[in-house]
Write a protein that binds this DNA or RNA. Structure first.
Lengths: 208, 208, 208, 208
DNA sequence: TATGAATGAGTCTTCATTCAT
DNA sequence: CATGAATGAAGACTCATTCAT
């Protein structure tokens, strides 16, 4: 019975994911899902207590991962690395960041799609906004600390600039996914992206 | 009666705009609007023949402006200017572009909000996607022509890079609006943005 | 001013007739009519105090004519003629009837269409039913009188038979109109119809 | 639950039928039906996915029967029987036809009412028209074949005559139903009807 | 676990008609 | 005479959710 239950649950999750992906949260009805799985609508409520919870469940692993990443990355410990980066000696740092997000793409492609542009109507419709906000906050704290430690580096004009780059990264991911880029084009796009960010930030920080 | 008519019409448009802004197209009902204006639901249909038309009406001026901008900007005539830009002599070109989009922001702040992230459910829900796609197309054509004329300039790796920058511009606008930046912060953000794009593109194009 | 008024009224009537003909009473809206005439909806109410009244007005002449025909035909005076008819000597009697109805067709083609199968939803939707009912009644009275006078003629079994022939005549007219028969086919159809009725009725009445 | 379901379904169908009969398809609202049955409007949609489908369901058996009758009757095999009929030797043939339609009346009285004059607004509003048209077509083909085989029989003047008799048959049925004739009067009416058709057609066909 | 019945609030839209001007 | 604004009731249908079994 446990077996059967898990099987149905899995089916619900799998099919719901596909439909949410295709039509978005708001335009997907419980009926659509139930019909696709071949069960009664009300049976879904034996597994998830609402449409919203079902959606959150599908997107759950991605969110966990995102939270983890936020906690890990934006700690104040590796400011030395940042100095090396800012002075052009450590191209690998931003690259690492991006590579990690690319790993995200490969592992959570569908969930990202859902969260990034199919979540309207759900309780997660503002999640990405809030997430970037928080990230930006952390970055700002990091920069404050950094500026205190290394006062002769250039100063960014406005916090918004940090914010927008946060957003852009997600948009970059979002667009890569949306257009189903082939692997090699993804690589080239990332290379362009990294180079852009590197040179851009260096210019902003008035290095040298 | 003429007076009264225009007044009510204005009220409908104004209130609808506010509600759309707050709740989005899909979650806004004609009842909401009617109740807010203090009229019967059916009376709205004396002014606009559908919810969608009402939305398009509100957003109409913005769309006209966007179409105009696309027509005007992306013509193949000013490639000489572009050369000067690419070689670092004409910082004003991109700046002009961006300034124009800033004008957009100031004149169409609400409409942009609506079009950028409150249009789901309406017939315009894909407008921005299609618009960026089209713009990207025009840019690509422009670049093809450019490469034939000036073959010794660097070549961008992938069309997607053009695309993503198109998207980013809209994201930039979108975020500026979403966070209701004060005027001076907008200016500083733009300056950062322009500098970023300048140095980034030059790096990409002058590769050897 | 009188001129102008009459002109508009005429336009309303004319256009309404066309739309009623095409879509039927129920599926025609006042808006349709107003739009077609190029006036405001409410202006129609200056001429007719409801959609129903408008319809009745259009169909009025036909109704007047029908009432007149009923009064004239079914009087008890020409029973002698009927005897001649029943004994096969006066083929012209039924023929006269039908010819009169054919005149109706030519003079009131559109109105008949309206009354016969486009009146559903109006207060006249049962008019034809009631009319045939009344006609049948009159015929029955006529036949009762006739049977008293000429007891040796055959007796029709059931009043319903009279009724159904009344109905059939209208259906005949209705179908002639509905199929827009060319003149000569109408003639042949009528000839068949008359012959049919003649021989049929004689058989029913056991003449000879 | 099975029990309850069937009960409600039956109630819906039964009540809907009555209301449709009384007010016609167009003037019957789902609310009317729901209220009559004592359930919520949306519950009806658990049984029938639209008002039209509900109507078609009610009228379904009748339509199946009509289709069957058309398929069975109008085959070209029994032309010999028809010769016997035409020459006055086989009164049973038409009689059989009519008897079958009488069976229709007894088994599908309400459905016939619905289909014949309460279907306006539904997808079946033209069904009877199309059905008669098709039947007429089949009869015409039959007659063509017949005329080639037996060229010395009289020729009917116009196809419209066949058509009108098709229509009349339905009108006959329609009127029988509309007036709720008692059984014996139905029988007498049919006898009149058959005799009428017999003598009429013989007259038309044996014209030298 | 799974079902299908049932709910009730909600959706946009249409319509004939009336009112004020 | 003519207008356009305004009304209010009504239309079919959808949806997430709960209930009884």
């Amino acid at each position: 019975m446990q077996v059967k239950k898990d099987y149905t649950r899995e089916q619900i999750v799998e099919f719901a994911k596909q439909v949410f992906l295709k039509n978005g949260y708001a335009k997907t009805s419980m009926r659509d899902i139930a019909k696709g799985v071949g069960i009664g609508v009300s049976n879904i409520y034996n597994y998830f207590k609402s449409k919203d919870e079902l959606f959150r469940h599908i997107v759950g692993p991605l969110i966990a991962e995102l939270e983890r990443m936020m906690r890990e990355h934006h700690n104040v410990d590796n400011q030395d690395g940042f100095v090396r980066y800012a002075s052009g000696e450590a191209d690998d740092m931003l690259a690492d960041h991006v590579k990690e997000y690319m790993r995200l793409i490969n592992n959570h492609r569908d969930e990202l799609k859902l969260l990034l542009y199919q979540s309207q109507g759900s309780s997660l419709e503002n999640y990405i906004d809030e997430y970037t906000e928080e990230c930006t906050h952390l970055v700002l704290e990091f920069m404050d600390e950094f500026k205190r430690k290394f006062p002769d580096y250039g100063v960014i004009h406005t916090p918004f600039t940090y914010h927008i780059h946060m957003v852009w990264m997600f948009n970059f991911i979002s667009e890569v996914i949306k257009h189903d880029l082939p692997a090699d084009e993804i690589r080239r796009a990332i290379e362009d992206y990294i180079q852009f960010e590197f040179t851009g930030w260096r210019a902003l920080m008035n290095v040298k």
